[in-house]
Design a protein around this nucleic acid. Structure first.
Lengths: 227, 227
DNA sequence: CTGGATCCATGATGATACTG
DNA sequence: CAGTATCATCATGGATCCAG
């Protein structure tokens, strides 16, 4: 296998960190594993445009560096990739990049641009976090096209994890990716089911559209919402 | 010119951020500009191994993205590159990478490995920050081989800036890069001049060696301190 | 079907030399 | 000082194929 061994050769921990995660796609792989373990094809779905060769190579490199572990159980077909504690420590880096991108590299969804519900949720949650509205804890359970996500705020910080929550959430949202887009960007709840106590549901409806308003109106019309 | 226009084409602000700063060397250029404006050759010195072509290309790309500005004064030979506010907003990303690298990608200086005083100071300050010793404000003025740096703590966070401080610092340290290495990694103050009031100087002496102790002793002997 | 590997094309990066 | 020019190499992408 061709292994990317290109290093900077500097005494600088920033450079050394980038030797581990600075290759193309690496941080996006880590981003997708931050919400929970994934299979090879789960990652292929989210990383639209990556080739299996590159994904395979990145996973091997990240495993060598101790950031990712491949869980291969005997007698089980699937391989589940998950982050080590060192890998999970990269969460703040991803969050900062996400935060910077939201403020300085935002663009409305373009026609035909791949848009995965998981990334949209991450972005929407970050916008809510950035806008710093309510600081009350919250637990929102999303069911998007059969996949479950839990967006959770402890009052200080939001986190997004894949999988159904073990115990009941405040609000449960059932939607498709398309109807979720319409809800976030246009406030339309057509084809969406939102359940929960009135208070939490009201707060959810107030805050879920934050992403569409936190970006300036000057940028708002430079792109299309509909792929 | 060959311009790197490779994009991910995803609706994801993390991916969009990485389209701006995810190329090889980009974040290291930003790291070096975070301490203040630099000339082309200043950057070449710090980014050992980069070719002038690549540096030129990165600076052009970062200027296109609104992260860097080239200051060309008429009648002046030098071009000074500095960060825009959007570029300065990448500080937390660099700090997090530095922090991750310190904990998970640390290695003692290797023989012949390029080591710039500015990067060593950044790393040493980060280690002090990580160890979370004293939370008192401090201002340390380093004079390393003719270049001035100010390491400053407001009690919560340390910052490193290039250039002499406008007003007096608590401690002034005059050294060469080699003697600074010896001070940080071996506690030796041979060839170093440390001036200031007894209290701040004592604190400086206590904390400057933090980098050498914060990394585990198991790793401590896997490399050489002396290039 | 998942989880890749292989082959080839292309574009980004590196090495070296040179210039306004 | 601040780059450019040329050539070589390597990483990535596209397409296809294969094993369990």
């Amino acid at each position: 296998m061709t292994r990317n061994v290109r290093s900077y050769g500097h005494f600088c921990v920033t450079a050394r960190a980038l030797e581990s995660v600075g290759d193309r796609w690496s941080l996006l792989v880590i981003r997708d594993l931050l919400t929970g373990a994934k299979r090879f094809t789960d990652l292929m779905d989210r990383l639209a445009g990556i080739t299996p060769k590159t994904l395979s190579q990145r996973l091997d490199e990240l495993a060598d560096t101790g950031i990712v572990v491949a869980d291969r159980a005997p007698g089980r077909r699937e391989v589940w990739y998950h982050l080590t504690p060192a890998g999970a420590d990269l969460g703040p880096v991803i969050d900062d990049l996400n935060w910077w991108g939201l403020r300085h590299a935002w663009r409305w969804p373009q026609a035909g641009e791949p848009l995965h519900a998981e990334h949209l949720l991450r972005c929407a949650i970050q916008a809510i976090d950035l806008a710093a509205g309510s600081r009350e804890p919250a637990r929102w359970h999303f069911r998007i096209g059969g996949a479950d996500y839990l967006a959770e705020s402890d009052g200080h910080q939001w986190t997004l994890t894949a999988g159904a929550p073990p115990d009941a959430a405040d609000v449960t949202i059932t939607a498709t990716t398309q109807s979720l887009i319409a809800l976030i960007f246009a406030g339309s709840d057509a084809g969406i089911d939102i359940t929960g106590a009135p208070g939490p549901v009201r707060r959810f409806r107030e805050e879920i559209g934050t992403l569409a308003t936190v970006v300036g109106p000057a940028q708002a019309r430079s792109g299309s919402v509909w792929p």
